[in-house]
Design a protein around this nucleic acid. Structure first.
Length: 433
RNA sequence: GCCCCGGUAGUGUAGUGGCCUAUCAUACGGGCCUGUCGAGCCCGUGACUCGGGUCCAAAUCCCGGCCGGGGCGCCA
């Protein structure tokens, strides 16, 4: 790339003058050879452009026939808008250099009309991700997350990174992956929960973390992953109402950032993206039971809702909604009971249709209550002393939540399978690529 | 953990006992075509997950293995 001409991206071509010489680097997406003229389509991370090549103006024209799809090429040519191409712009090829040839046939076609199974796609994820519509998922996710980060940062939150290799036994609920840590038994953390709380005791006041969470659950569904990205916050001197407010505003900020900074992304999504206006509606667990009752679904207090029941509840709302005041028996030990009605808790889930996106609550801050709650869940407080100690020397009241990033992408992009929302999913059977 | 379902060319499929030396599309190879853009037309290459069994006969039925998908539970 010793050329004086600076390489440009496909999207840059819009602003380039007729007749200007350009260099484009990218993949040879397709090649149509006719007798005395050939059309190539070059793709880079910004789009595709037709490269027109003629024997008398392209050096090495006869080598085109040997080129395979997805070969990495560098094209030098002149831009013209006097074209019959549908985009109204094309590059007349002077020379084309093969930077790295691609094997053929491809294990997965980038633009083939036949669609591959998700299995084939994931095995060949590097090819799958070359599809603009697949790449778009991750560009969207990045923008969403960036907007949320900005919001939490501006709201006084400190971004932290807590250990993923932990000693503690389970918090209850999900199973943990054991790892051998030298001579000790350790586990991959199922959530940063306990560490976030310790940081509140440490006086950091407001923390957030974006990181992996591991669940050793043998589920095999389109909405579960064994490694997912958890966005977590914890705030001191706050209750569940404050946490819900932060969640609502955080999600809105993510969407706002996406819509305002990348209207191009939003426009090319198959799914319409809108920033919710106003407060997300709230419904209590008990109200849900009453609603389900009117649908002929009998739910006992203390039962969790089935996916079918959540669909019925979700049908009553157009977008995000909170289900609040869950029975204490259904929530983790650190969930604060509701004062005056301790059978329920100061807890909430953020839902979108039948999908649970976030789980949060005001946390127990009183060490005696916390120990009692541990015992009531058949957990041994001795196993949690590293955590309980943080509550014994001045722990502020606090609240927080954890949000599944892939689930958020799933619902915002209306994906059919959560594996679509993560680059390299770790599911029941897959650990490669 | 429980319960269902599936595995046919590179990719995606049709075929549920003989009509299968296995369908179609796409991809791939070759040929024709001065402007294509889901290019078109012609020719060609290419596959029954593995092992055992039943049967005159198995892609097809049975058993087991391997690999995968989905539902429930649990959860983000």
């Amino acid at each position: 790339m010793q050329s004086q001409i600076v390489a440009v991206t496909v999207s840059d071509l819009r602003n380039i003058k007729e007749g200007d010489e350009v260099v484009l680097n990218g993949w040879l997406q397709e090649i149509r050879l006719l007798k005395n003229i050939s059309f190539l389509v070059l793709r880079d991370h910004t789009g595709t452009i037709q490269i027109t090549s003629k024997p008398d103006t392209t050096s090495g024209y006869d080598k085109l026939a040997q080129m395979t799809r997805e070969t990495v090429i560098s094209v030098t040519g002149t831009l013209t808008r006097k074209t019959q191409s549908k985009s109204g712009i094309e590059v007349l090829c002077k020379s084309i250099k093969v930077l790295n040839a691609s094997k053929s046939p491809l294990p997965l076609g980038i633009i083939d009309p036949v669609s591959a199974d998700i299995e084939t796609r994931l095995t060949n994820r590097f090819l799958d991700l070359r599809k603009p519509e697949v790449a778009l998922i991750f560009r969207t996710e990045s923008e969403l997350l960036w907007g949320m980060r900005e919001f939490f940062h501006d709201s006084g939150f400190v971004e932290v990174h807590t250990p993923k290799i932990v000693a503690a036994a389970t918090e209850g609920g999900a199973d943990l992956f054991p790892v051998q840590y030298f001579e000790k038994q350790a586990y991959l953390n199922q959530s940063p929960q306990l560490y976030k709380e310790i940081l509140i005791s440490a006086g950091m006041n407001r923390v957030f973390e974006v990181g992996p969470a591991f669940r050793a659950e043998k589920h095999n569904t389109p909405r579960h992953l064994n490694e997912f990205t958890s966005i977590d916050i914890e705030m001191g001197f706050a209750d569940h109402h404050d946490a819900m407010h932060m969640l609502q505003e955080g999600i809105k900020s993510g969407l706002k950032h996406l819509v305002s900074h990348r209207p191009d992304i939003v426009a090319s999504l198959s799914q319409q993206v809108e920033v919710p206006v106003g407060d997300f509606p709230k419904i209590t667990y008990r109200e849900c039971i009453r609603k389900l009752d009117s649908h002929g679904e009998a739910v006992k207090f203390g039962d969790d809702f089935t996916p079918e029941q959540l669909k019925l509840i979700g049908a009553e709302f157009t977008g995000f909604y909170f289900i609040t005041e869950w029975p204490s028996s259904l929530r983790a030990f650190y969930t604060h009971p509701k004062p005056g009605d301790e059978t329920v808790s100061n807890s909430f889930d953020l839902q979108y249709r039948e999908f649970e996106i976030t789980s949060g609550a005001q946390r127990v801050h009183d060490p005696a209550m916390l120990e009692e709650r541990l015992r009531s869940k058949n957990l041994n407080p001795d196993d949690f002393s590293f955590y309980l100690n943080a509550f014994r020397y001045g722990m502020p009241p606090h609240a927080g939540w954890g949000l599944g990033l892939e689930r958020l992408s799933l619902i915002i992009l209306n994906l059919q399978n959560i594996r679509e929302a993560i680059l390299f999913p770790r599911d029941r059977t897959r650990i490669t690529p």
